[in-house]
Design a protein around this nucleic acid. Sequence first.
DNA 1: CGATTCGATCGAATCGTTTCGATGGATTTC
DNA 2: GAAATCCATCGAAACGATTCGATCGAATCG
Lengths: 355, 355
Amino acid sequence: MAPSAPTRAARPTLARVASRAGVSVSTASLVFSGRGPVSDATRAKVLAAAAALDYAGPDPTARSLRRGRTGVVGVVTEDRLADAFRDPMNLALLDGIGEGFGDERLGLLVIPRAVDSASELESAPIDAAILLGCSTDIVRSVEALHRRRIPVVAIEAERMDGVVAIDLDNRDASRRGAEHLRDLGHRRVAIVTLPIDAGHTRGEVSPERLRSSTAFGTLERLAGARQVFPDAIAVSTAGSTIDEGMRAARTLLDVPSGARPTAIVAQSDLLAVGVLRVAEELGIAVPAELSVLGFDGIRLEGAIEGVLTTLVQPAIDKGRVAAEAVLAELAGDSGRGVELRSELRVGTTTGLAPH
Amino acid sequence: MAPSAPTRAARPTLARVASRAGVSVSTASLVFSGRGPVSDATRAKVLAAAAALDYAGPDPTARSLRRGRTGVVGVVTEDRLADAFRDPMNLALLDGIGEGFGDERLGLLVIPRAVDSASELESAPIDAAILLGCSTDIVRSVEALHRRRIPVVAIEAERMDGVVAIDLDNRDASRRGAEHLRDLGHRRVAIVTLPIDAGHTRGEVSPERLRSSTAFGTLERLAGARQVFPDAIAVSTAGSTIDEGMRAARTLLDVPSGARPTAIVAQSDLLAVGVLRVAEELGIAVPAELSVLGFDGIRLEGAIEGVLTTLVQPAIDKGRVAAEAVLAELAGDSGRGVELRSELRVGTTTGLAPH
DNA sequence: CGATTCGATCGAATCGTTTCGATGGATTTC
DNA sequence: GAAATCCATCGAAACGATTCGATCGAATCG
């Protein structure tokens, strides 16, 4: 009787290659890893045997087990995968990460952080992790990774032990943006925020909600704006998208013109674009009747008329720095984190307050 | 003397957990994998020991080696990572893939297909691969994967042995689009194509270049259009972006109006948007003086005025079907591939030919 | 020419699991 | 009450590589 069918076609192993080449397994290993001296003749023999057996090189899992390294870095995103990549900020970060890794052969394993369950974080074969768009509630993820002794680099997260933080001057930058509006004479200002809780709840941000929030970056930006406009009303959104910006803007702008803010601070450029769209819908002139401020400084070519006034952050640098931090961690140097600076770019969407 | 410092902090192993719990390693394994009967008392003992030692669960690499499965699927993209995710088609595919995997816990490892070197393909720890945006020159990638006995699912690639192809009716759909233009009276038609070679060369597509091309989908779409307009001039681009569409459009439209085509067939919606932008720049009225046809049917809200006439393909379905094919391959059923259908959506960018 | 060095090769241990077949006690069946 | 069944547990053999220290000629040195 034939044995039950081998599911996986018999892959050749290093042992078979070695035996066919008439050398020991260890020598054959040396040929493929290039870590020891091997005579040209032996090398040729081994390679010939490998070719004859159609051997594709050492099995990555076996190699990983032995070496203790997988060559893979996890990129943890908050949303569903495709959504995360719809955010231009995250794409810029990816660009930077690629740049930072240079020719280090590291794969990127994308891991959506499941809000409810444990997710892949607990069992993904990775050497290090970069927390990408994880604004809210990262503590659990970090704990899981720490238990596994996996170094963590977080982009714009609160400072935590054992986490290298790549930060932005969120609070200070927001304050500078708000000051720009104040200098233009604005007094009635409203804020459209990024998500402030893990549930991504929409709606007015009460002091209550503020206290229970865990979204570090969002809170920083909000605090910065409120240093200048302490009483500014804030409305939270479910994410950084044009649609979300529009939803929030409708609640703020579709009101009697006396109650309407003269300026809106949006916590991202996409949100700001949403605000601009609604203003156009409602026939509100920008910047004559309404000023709009963004954050990020992404390319918006064609999406709006004119130039968005916004805080331009060095997104690519952020990614690059994160990648460098990962490399440092893997090399044994524990990084200390970095804070990058944003610049106010004054465009055509902010102007003197009406009256 | 202390032994040379252990680089990697001593991670607890299943063996240590087992010994602390006073059970055998195999029993402890059963507790974590849930594949065998374990009494509640034993389970509790093991979990307690694990907690005490801060054990994070079985090591993924060891598990992969033993089980012969990594739980990771490679997504091979043509461009640099971030570029690949800038293409809305690829994002839609990702959406579909996520959908198709359902609650199967599979990670996605993104692998940019290095044009020159061997790339990670040869050593990435994956169970299967999906060739995503790989329009050109996939043969080498496929060979590398086959040698490793890794099942391959390719989206819109030529049919190859051992590759499950998820295809589109590219040729037929393009023909239908072209017929639409013909029925509107167009005779002078030009085509803006996706890349036709691995080098992503721009410029007029000579019969010469056509012959040496390996870009299956591109060629199919071109062939379909030329079934209706055999002599239509074609200009190739370096990728599916608005910018590339604009570059190509300038060479076609910035000419004396007698030599100008009355319709342009673009092989993607982004390219079509580029064409529309240039038409606007040059003051060419659409559709009165120029008709523009796209391909894909992505959401373009706000990017253009009116509605793009285009061939709408079921992008999410494509991703979902690809994921299902992967699952089938991993389960041992070898899939047979699928061809999906596109629909012509007539918008406001095509109209009667001038005169 | 004997002692030393060096480069190439090899054997064996190891990485941390999973899984197969065996064992032995408790329970059920006739 | 003996035979058959069953459940929980265990020991040992993989999985496929890497790496350390040992070995053994050949080349170098004085």
